[in-house]
């Protein structure tokens, strides 16, 4: 299948990319890895007149960290994120999710920021980033703004980005030693597959294993990947017992509004929310205990 015709613009900086994007508005799209965009173009689901290629802008493919935060640049590939030692240490669910997204070739080209901007409900990296309280740094021609990731997703393929805006980087607060996190996915084919359901959890506990902060997010079971705030509140201030897990799973089930599609039925997805929430919470706690 051939690509439709387009003009290819090469900005020298992200700033310039914003200016180009502001100028061409809906007629332009940003290309980083291209693993989602080019396929959509071939299938004619999007037909931009301008492609703004940002992949060669210097110093945008970074993963930085200081003693407080870790930052993922716009061009950091899924492979980079999966293999980064700091991410593996502080954000193991993200490292794992990036490493099981699609295939090796796609992970080498595709970016984590692109995975988020594509805003697929089933994006592997979305739920881990949600449970790590990720902030999205958005650049526009006049400056920058920051948005919490759970306010970023607005619908399937729809984000909070406005005309002339691009995502510069993702900022994740480092997790503590007394935390554990986990990503669970299930799909019809056992390996190398898109998630039919994905669930992430991140628990912080005190020295008595009382949960001080809980994060729980579900993917591919609603129009957007989303946190289960009510379940998080229920978990906080308590110890992770069988009964508490039951409650969290039940609340998550209520929050899930899956559809039946080519990948799974709604009833199977609902069941998997239940199973994966339990697994993600248990695995997070086991990780804490193993530290």
């Amino acid at each position: 299948m051939a690509l439709p015709k387009f003009s290819y613009l090469i900005p020298k900086s992200l700033k310039e990319a914003c200016i180009m994007l502001a100028e061409h508005e809906d007629k332009a799209r940003i290309l980083a890895g291209g693993t989602d965009l080019l396929i959509k173009m071939k299938h004619r689901t999007v037909q931009p007149e301008y492609i703004i290629g940002i992949s060669n802008i210097p110093n945008t493919d970074y993963v930085h960290s200081n003693h407080k935060h870790l930052t993922i640049g716009a061009n950091a590939s899924l492979t980079m994120v999966a293999q980064n030692p700091d991410i593996q240490r502080y954000f193991p669910a993200l490292a794992y999710a990036a490493g099981v997204t699609a295939t090796v070739q796609i992970r080498n080209m595709g970016t984590v920021v692109g995975n988020i901007c594509n805003a697929s409900p089933s994006a592997d990296t979305a739920t881990p980033l949600l449970v790590y309280d990720t902030k999205v740094v958005i650049m526009h021609p006049a400056g920058e703004r920051t948005l919490a990731l759970d306010e970023f997703f607005r619908g399937p393929g729809v984000t909070a980005l406005e005309s002339g805006e691009i995502v510069k980087e993702l900022v994740l607060p480092l997790t503590s030693d007394r935390s554990g996190s986990n990503y669970q996915k299930v799909s019809p084919r056992s390996k190398v597959d898109i998630a039919a359901v994905g669930v992430s959890a991140c628990l912080h506990v005190d020295e008595k294993e009382t949960i001080t902060q809980a994060r729980l997010a579900i993917g591919a079971v609603a129009p957007v990947p989303k946190r289960v705030l009510h379940a998080e509140k229920t978990l906080e201030g308590k110890k992770l017992t069988e009964e508490l897990i039951n409650q969290a799973a039940e609340i998550s089930l209520d929050e899930a509004t899956p559809i039946s599609d080519t990948r799974a039925t709604a009833s199977y997805r609902k069941k998997m929310v239940d199973v994966l929430v339990r697994r993600a919470l248990n695995a997070s706690m086991e990780q804490i205990r193993a530290k």
Binding site: P188, R189, S190, K191, V192, D193, I194, T262, R263
Partner: peptide
């Protein structure tokens, strides 16, 4: 082949 699922090498 994303949604017509032939087994992958790992399967």
């Amino acid at each position: 082949f994303l949604d017509y699922k032939i087994p992958a090498a790992e399967d």
